[in-house]
């Protein structure tokens, strides 16, 4: 009787594991296909039936990309813009979230609500006028201009995440720091920030991800080829010379995704902790 029950349970768990594995396989298949296509010579790619396993593996698609200084430039631009955005977001969001977590002041809730509602405003409408402002201020085709715009749209989530990390630290920490004679800035930088390091990492990576992903603002603000970021460069190469070279396009896509995917795998723990910390407050 007991062995029968045990067996039934294990069959059910086998089915469960199989379901999970099949689901993972389906969801990851597009990524597998992107990688396989990127190492397949074009003449094998454009044939039926599709080669589900890689054949005649080649890196020629990759060498075509990195031989072009213009394409390397897209990568550099993306790194500069995303890195700059992360810095700016941290500089702005750490004080603001510290304030929302620790202090009370007039209009605090109104200020928090207005920051959170940023993601509601149609980016396109903002871009129409921002574009003309940027023309006047000379910010079109500058790193500064795109970094500023990217940062503002990453701010709401950054502030919300950082605030939830500050909220987890007991207020007694601030008090004992003050008794030891630390000023408010010292309390923040010496006592609280080291303890919120996981939060800072989560915010940094999230911001890097969203800035690396940005297409619309980069498309509008960066109009010269030398200033374009990776997503825009990638999309426009598709309209142009890669129109039928899917091997090259997929190699370009893999190269453009790799920094982000590696970063995610490396910092996965912080990312998931950070993403879910804000949403699940009990």
């Amino acid at each position: 009787m007991q062995t029968y029950k045990k067996k039934r349970v294990s069959i059910r768990s086998i089915i469960k594991y199989l379901t999970v594995i099949i689901l993972v396989a389906i969801l990851l298949f597009p990524i597998y296909w992107m990688v396989v296509s990127s190492v397949t010579p074009s003449n094998f790619l454009m044939s039926l039936p599709p080669h589900l396993l890689p054949i005649k593996t080649t890196l020629i698609n990759y060498s075509k990309i990195f031989a072009r200084p213009q394409y390397v430039r897209f990568f550099i631009n993306s790194f500069v813009v995303s890195g700059g955005t992360v810095l700016l977001v941290l500089v702005i969001s750490i004080p603001a979230s510290y304030s929302f977590s620790r202090f009370n002041f007039a209009f605090k809730n109104a200020i928090m609500t207005s920051i959170m509602s940023v993601q509601m405003f149609p980016i396109v409408v903002i871009l129409i006028s921002l574009y003309t402002f940027y023309l006047q201020w000379g910010l079109i085709n500058t790193y500064r201009g795109l970094i500023l715009a990217d940062a503002v749209f990453a701010l709401p989530l950054a502030i919300m995440l950082m605030k939830s990390f500050f909220d987890t630290l007991p207020k007694s920490l601030d008090e004992s720091a003050r008794i030891d004679g630390a000023g408010r800035f010292q309390t923040l930088f010496r006592v609280l920030l080291p303890l919120t390091l996981p939060g800072i990492i989560a915010v940094g990576i999230y911001t890097f991800l969203s800035s690396w992903d940005d297409f619309l603002m980069a498309l509008t603000i960066m109009t010269t080829d030398t200033m374009k970021t990776l997503p825009v460069g990638l999309a426009q190469s598709f309209m142009g010379e890669y129109a039928h070279d899917y091997g090259g396009l997929m190699a370009f896509s893999v190269a453009g995704s790799l920094p982000i995917v590696l970063m995610f795998i490396f910092f996965q723990r912080y990312m998931i902790e950070g993403l879910t910390a804000g949403a699940v407050k009990g």
């Binding site: 999970v20 689901l23 993972v24 969801l27 990851l28 597009p30 990524i31 296909w33 992107m34 296509s37 991800l209 690396w212 992903d213 297409f215 990776l230 997503p231 825009v232 990638l234 999309a235 598709f238 899917y246 396009l249 997929m250 896509s253 453009g256 995704s257 982000i260 995917v261 995610f264 795998i265 996965q268 998931i272």
Partner: peptide, 23 residues
């Protein structure tokens, strides 16, 4: 498994569009 499931979320939107166009 949760980490594996999350990978598509990290792929840049432009790549998502071009990849599905190809598929």
């Amino acid at each position: 498994f949760r980490g594996l499931f999350l990978i598509p979320w990290t792929i840049p939107s432009v790549v998502v569009a071009l990849l599905w166009r190809w598929m």
